[in-house]
Design a protein around this nucleic acid. Structure first.
Lengths: 153, 153
DNA sequence: GATCACACGTGAGTC
DNA sequence: TGACTCACGTGTGAT
């Protein structure tokens, strides 16, 4: 992966160098044409257009470079591949987030069950008597009080 | 945001339509040149090159389109802006993940403190005697055994 | 009407 | 060598 980075760095630096060199050459050629051309205004407009187009291309390349820096595990160095890897990366994040969300919602539903149970116990105006109390009640209606402890324990 | 989507959809469809139309026109013009050119092989090679280049461009555009579909909150429809938004999106994810990681590590450190405390209690070869035991010891050394219960309680 | 973003064909370079 | 990628200048449509 480190070798890949080195190769990639060399690749992009080479590309940028090449671009700059070509751009300088093109600038020189155009300035030369400007000085010799009878119609200077049109040529300067064309030159401006060329310049802006070059800026636009450069910006896009830099942006792509930044994208590449943000996304790990870039397999290939093509523009399309970089974007594809970014897409896969984002989709991985989405899957991860969805799993976490599912887990959270599952826990939430469980917690709500517990909450319902708690509410039934604590907020009920007539809470159910515990099993021991019920046993006591049923024992009280009988004759022998001993039975209370026998059943209650 | 919905308007944005519609505009974007129209924008891209228009672009694709325009591209297809231009491509067809270019194909026709090139096939025409092929039939009239004396050197058919070279021209067909050029045509093939043009075709493959068009495929490559189209692939990149589609990939960018897919990226746009994956990333929410696209502000502008430029290619560069799409990539920029994707970068911001990924960076948001990274920040989120880093925060969660920090939270987890914080909890882990707290848990390790508790673990150290537990280990000190359970794994110590000579555990400290409880306060009640100490009291018993000090009471045993005295005369009256009654005092044990008085102090112990 | 100037500007912007785009797709185009083309030549150069890499593998 | 042939397939592939890239940056270039250019023409065009939209804003």
């Amino acid at each position: 992966m480190d070798d890949m980075d080195v190769v990639y760095k060399y690749y992009w630096e080479n590309m940028i160098l090449q671009t700059e060199q070509l751009g300088r050459n093109f600038d020189e050629s155009f300035s030369f044409y400007d000085s010799s051309s009878p119609d200077g205004a049109q040529s300067s407009a064309a030159s401006k257009n060329i310049e802006s187009e070059r800026k636009r291309r450069q910006k896009l390349t830099e942006t792509l470079h930044a994208l590449r820096a943000v996304v790990p595990n870039i397999s290939k160095m093509d523009k399309a591949s970089i974007i594809k890897d970014a897409i896969c990366y984002i989709q991985q994040f989405h899957n991860q987030e969805r799993m976490i969300q599912a887990e959270i919602s599952e826990l939430e539903s469980k917690r709500s069950i517990f909450l319902d149970f708690d509410q039934e116990i604590s907020y009920n105006s007539k809470p159910k008597r515990s099993r021991f109390e019920q046993t006591c009640d049923s024992a009280k209606s009988r004759s022998s009080p001993i039975e209370v402890f026998e059943v209650g324990l």
